[in-house]
Design a protein around this nucleic acid. Structure first.
Lengths: 229, 229
DNA sequence: TAGGACATGACACTTTCATGACAAGGGCTA
DNA sequence: TAGCCCTTGTCATGAAAGTGTCATGTCCTA
């Protein structure tokens, strides 16, 4: 299981350091910045699994960062937890309405933030929390690195496994070839776009079980998705 | 678009009634019970999209309900928001660790709870949280790249899809052929004006469902619009 | 009723995708 | 270390689906 990538946007150095320490201790892969614009750049370059965003930061404001993350295709679905010192309900609601998934009011204990991060990740990316994912009749166990369909064990290469896992984390959602390259092969991989097709085909072949239908949907001129069949 | 089904487990009658009223006003399909065991039965019988669970209820305790929901295959993935009167951090953390997706501390405003429900649903089923576009009986889910009408899945080419999406983003508004070329084909496309007519026709054919009326309105010497029928 | 505007079917042309083949690389074993 | 097997990225090819244009028919309106 690869570590979950967190992006922490916090301009109080001591708090940032404390949180970074705690999260790394929990096995997360943490990057930190104090600046909103930096945060956006970092998020675009390497899409994190979750963003922890202080409402009051230098440069671009927290809510603006949130809005922009939501606007970009690649980061639109990254969960965001906002840190806010405000008691004001309007701000909390506005944060949630802007697209934040959760907020936590300062002062908070690191432990509670950890619990929230874990809860959000579990909801969004069960595989990161070590839980198995199920889509239709396909079950993927990230801990055992096993895939089963209708009780039968499936055999596939490492790339097909990662591709399947990536797709299963967002069932039904269509990913472009570029998104798949970023998500499965890693940002900045220098791979031919069409190579994705080939791996999709290998994946299709790997999940073939007697009379079961193909769970991989091709969306012409858009990409691929996996769905319950 | 079918309404999101909520299950509200709350034993304070006045609060339950208030919430039920607010949620139904927002278009949710709400069922209410005051009892933990009832809640489990109801959840098994008709799996809700989200559970709002009071921590302190009669019968089986909230946390126990949470645990059991998580244990059953059918309800394991249903998001849970816990309502708690306790300030105690341990309880909050324990709730999250047990599998609740979120909690909210009493007293809270219905508005905030609504925002949280919406935020959680947005994650789980984008189509339920208003991320899909709906015009009349046509529902377009941009994330899954799917279009449905009266529950039936529609099939169309990429251009028709983009055209439909563009029109549905401004229901009722009339677009000239030039505007459509700019918006759907991209500015600077060197396409014959009349080609729009052809794609409109293909779109019309694609959204044909048994006896449903044509949602595409032709405005003579002006352009086209889509409207609820 | 004439003239313009729109609808429709046909068709040739493009784009996009599925598939099989293949060579390069890596790791493991004998 | 040579040989073998598995994985991987790329390419060529054929099939399928989608696209733009035109000619013709139909409708509407002044």
């Amino acid at each position: 299981m690869t570590a979950a990538k967190l992006l922490l946007v916090e301009d109080d150095p001591s708090l940032a350091e404390l949180l970074e320490f705690r999260f790394e201790k929990e096995g997360y892969d943490v990057r930190v910045t104090a600046d909103g614009d930096d945060a956006l750049v970092m998020a675009m370059e390497d899409v994190p699994d979750l963003v922890i965003l202080d409402w009051m930061i230098e440069g671009t404001s927290g809510i603006e960062v949130c809005r922009r993350l939501r606007r970009d295709q690649n980061t639109a679905h990254v969960p965001i937890i906002m840190l806010t010192a405000r008691e004001n309900e309007d701000d909390r609601v506005r944060g949630l309405e802007t697209g934040a998934d959760d907020y936590i009011t300062k002062p908070f204990s690191p432990r509670e933030l950890l619990a929230r991060v874990s809860a959000v990740l579990r909801r969004i990316r069960p595989a990161l929390a070590g839980e198995s994912i199920q889509v239709g009749d396909i079950v993927l166990d990230p801990v055992a690195h096993k895939v089963e369909r209708r009780g039968r064990r499936l055999q596939m290469g490492p790339t097909e496994y990662r591709l399947l896992k990536f797709l299963m984390e967002s069932p039904g959602r269509v990913f472009s070839r570029n998104q798949l390259l970023d998500g499965v092969w890693g940002t900045g991989s220098d791979i031919e776009l069409r190579t994705v097709d080939v791996h999709i085909r290998r994946l299709r072949k790997a999940v073939e079980v007697d009379g079961a239908k193909d769970p991989v949907r091709t969306v012409r001129s858009a990409g691929y998705a996996i769905e319950a069949v």
